[in-house]
Design a protein around this nucleic acid. Structure first.
Lengths: 257, 257
DNA sequence: ATGTTTACTTAATGGCTCTAAATAAAACTA
DNA sequence: TAGTTTTATTTAGAGCCATTAAGTAAACAT
């Protein structure tokens, strides 16, 4: 299930350890994640407590502190797993038809994002609802890195689109200076892969799609919509027009993980 | 501070009571709200517990159950207060220049929304972050009603705009049938004040603005922006263009409560 | 064989929600 | 005015929770 995360998981991480132990530890971590997820899906976010997870795994309370320094770190690790799974689903959709035009692969990845979100509402909601503690905001944290790799997926697609079929961008002179500066800074942090104006278009698309999903999963639009699927498709269509993509009329939503 | 809410606050609500007691109770409720808010702002959402609030007010623990049936109801009442305050701020901005064109009053209300959100980040974040329990989703709950009155403010402005300066709407034939049905249903629930196509435009604007604020306050855009003000203004400008509003180049942000 | 590291256990502290029972004051009622 | 009800509050307690401390048994290293 889980690709080795690479980063240290907890502060209880042992220093020197043998291979057998390492595998056992990994298996226990997987068990812990699975138990936390089961509790989240079955009984809601409030049921994901250290004690309950430990009980589920079959060990008693404080034993979990050998795997995570505390509740926040456990939450961060579980969230990171969700980000990874979401990114994997989007990556699979992107790579499903390697020969397809970039526009179609981009839209496929976007649809995969919503497909994962709607088939895993508890997990996707957890991404927003669980408060991001200071420790989980550090760039070295598993959560931050997984979130970054998730964002990277759409960014990479935009970069490829920009290289091969550049989309219309606003005249930088039309943007307020403060925004221009921030876009220039962001353009730097992504290694200049997109110029500031193109980064602006990317961030606008990202914000609208991700924001729509956020509102959907937080039930902020229940007063108007019962089924957000066509709303998301409308949003996609609008953004596609803004990116001057030429797409077939409608393609099937790809299956999720 | 608080306009009488009208609805029963808690299940501990006494049946027959004298005027003096009613005032005392109201004062205690205000104290409770103020204490909860102080804890939220000073120490974060996790610090808002029944025990801590009671301690802050000066009574011990279970006394709060005479005012609220439990934690969820307390959270709902506090959230409702925030919604009311936010709506009041927007209403004041809307009414600040009664003779001004509707377009300017609409934009002023939108700016007031963000102004309140950014000057009260803890409170605005609480609106999203606090899980909406089933009891708070019932239409009779204080939270639901306050949220509705908040949404109503922009809706009313859109209705007036639609009546006096109708904005461009999509051809219903271009919308997928499922979306058309939902828009028709929503048009009904708002008493037909907007036809489905106009309701679609309203909901799109609402979703984009509110979603942007949601992402801002949940720190989902920190990876790119350090100051969201120009981003919000950009969004406003884009929506104004879509609504064919004619606005002065830039007006000052109205002060918040 | 001995000592260290790892993976746990139980015990304990202090906080939390919420219920139950008791109590004092205020308000009605006769 | 005397007695009863209603309201506001308290303390006690059950059962969660996170977290720390101290102890134990097995795996590993030398």
């Amino acid at each position: 299930m889980s690709i080795p995360a690479g980063a240290d998981e907890g502060s209880g991480m042992p220093a020197r350890t043998t291979e057998r132990r390492r595998r056992l530890r990994e298996a226990t971590l997987d068990e812990i994640h699975a138990a936390a997820r089961r509790l989240l899906v079955d009984k809601g976010p409030a049921a994901v407590t250290i004690n309950a997870v430990a009980r589920e795994v079959g060990m008693s309370g404080p034993a979990l502190y050998h795997y995570y320094a505390g509740y926040d770190e456990l939450v961060g690790a579980v969230t990171a797993g969700f980000f990874r799974e979401l990114a994997e689903a989007m990556g699979r959709a992107r790579d499903a038809h390697p020969g397809a035009p970039i526009a179609e692969r981009l839209v496929a990845a976007c649809r995969a994002m919503r497909a994962w979100a709607t088939t895993h509402p508890a997990e996707f909601g957890w991404i927003f609802a669980s408060p991001v503690t200071p420790s989980n905001r550090q760039p070295a944290s598993a959560r931050h890195q997984a979130a970054q790799r998730f964002e990277q997926i759409l960014l990479d697609l935009f970069v490829e689109l920009w290289r091969t079929h550049p989309f219309p961008v606003p005249d930088p002179a039309d943007l307020p200076p403060s925004l221009r500066e921030q876009l220039a800074a962001y353009s730097d942090t992504i290694g200049g892969l997109l110029p500031p104006e193109a980064a602006h278009v990317f961030l606008t698309c990202w914000t609208r799609m991700y924001g729509l999903l956020c509102m959907e999963v937080l039930h902020q639009l229940d007063f108007a919509y019962t089924d957000m699927e066509p709303v998301f498709e409308e949003c996609l269509r609008d953004l596609a027009g803004r990116l001057a993509l030429d797409l077939p009329a409608q393609s099937a939503t790809p299956p999720a993980t």
